[in-house]
């Protein structure tokens, strides 16, 4: 087991390196320069600044320098945001994003699983149709429409929650709901489909033949067998949510990673773009490892080869 995890961590580092390389060169293909929006500087001053940050060097040289910093844990210094180190920017901004993402994830998946279970148990009944409609609406309504709607109804009209900005717990409620609707819909759909299939399997009939109650059938025998596809989609979704949603953070003016990412792309702030991309990538590879380990916990047939379980 330990050897397996060690090997996987090795793969993760290679993956991250490849992602860093590809995104570095892709980013260099972006039109414009970090100084394009700056009218106050003269051409000479601009040249000095470019020289100072090494932006005049050939791209491969810049790449080697960047990787050199990366290996030492240095993501560079932001061009646009008061010369702050990128690590500090990300750290400061990870808090709100992670909090919102976590809340949305927990609420979304729990409600989604419950909704999906209800739909599966009352298959083809009115409750099934209701929950399916909620799931379809959740997937098909764009989050910015939904977020705007929430702001209009609950903040502007009813005045229950602040419209936007970051601060108290009330500030997190509307963005959390807006973020949660996606995972809720996905979890509901997957749970429903999987549970219907699992509840139709032979071993469920065996369990019924033992005299197990309906709730025992659903929770002890059904849910665990329906979990595999569910965590496959929920894992990566969690990363996306916890590292910040660009759209939702923009709409609610939340100082999170997503909002930061949009801003830094606008001004060609190379180190920040790279830092954010790598943060996403890091989150994904870690979650994929966790999901793979969870598979083995949930389903003994997928126990990791090589290690004795």
């Amino acid at each position: 087991m330990a050897r397996y995890i060690l090997r996987r961590v090795g793969y993760m580092i290679v993956t991250l390196f490849i992602i860093a390389t590809v995104s570095f060169f892709l980013m260099k293909l972006l039109p414009g320069s970090p100084l394009q929006a700056d009218d106050k500087l003269s051409e000479e001053q601009k040249a000095i600044v470019l020289e100072k940050y090494g932006l005049n060097d050939p791209v491969p040289v810049q790449y080697v320098r960047y990787v050199g910093g990366l290996v030492q844990g240095d993501l560079g210094i932001s061009f646009a945001f008061d010369n702050t180190p990128v690590t500090k920017i990300l750290m400061d901004r990870l808090g709100p994003s992670a909090l919102l993402g976590f809340q949305a994830m927990v609420i979304g998946t729990i409600l989604g699983i419950i909704l999906g279970l209800i739909a599966a148990i009352f298959h083809n009944g009115p409750l099934d149709y209701t929950s399916t409609i909620i799931a379809v609406l959740g997937t098909s309504i764009p989050s910015f429409v939904f977020a705007g709607l929430l702001q209009y109804v609950f903040a502007v009209e009813l005045g229950w929650f602040p419209v936007a900005l970051w601060g108290e717990f009330q500030h997190t409620i509307l963005p959390t709901i807006a973020l949660a609707i996606g995972p809720l819909a996905t979890a509901a759909r997957f749970t429903r489909t999987e549970m219907i299939e699992v509840l139709g399997s032979n071993f469920i009939i065996t369990a019924r033949a033992k005299g197990i109650s309906e709730s025992g059938i659903v929770f002890k025998h059904g849910l665990r067998n329906a979990m595999i596809p569910l965590i496959t989609v929920i894992g990566p979704m969690a990363v996306g949510l916890m590292t910040g949603s660009m759209v939702i953070e923009q709409i609610f003016a939340i100082p999170g990673i997503g909002e930061q990412f949009v801003k830094s792309v606008m001004v060609n702030d190379y180190p920040t773009i790279m830092g954010t991309t790598l943060l996403y990538a890091f989150g994904f590879v870690v979650i994929i490892l966790i999901v793979d380990l969870l598979y083995g916990l949930i389903d003994p047939r997928i126990r990791i080869a090589g290690g004795k379980s």
Partner: peptide, 25 residues
Amino acid sequence: EMQKIRGKEISMVFQDPMSSLNPTM
């Protein structure tokens, strides 16, 4: 009432042993 009888008074052996056991238990 049937849940109290099933498995206790009357029980059943099924056709396909490959699928009639819960794979995760």
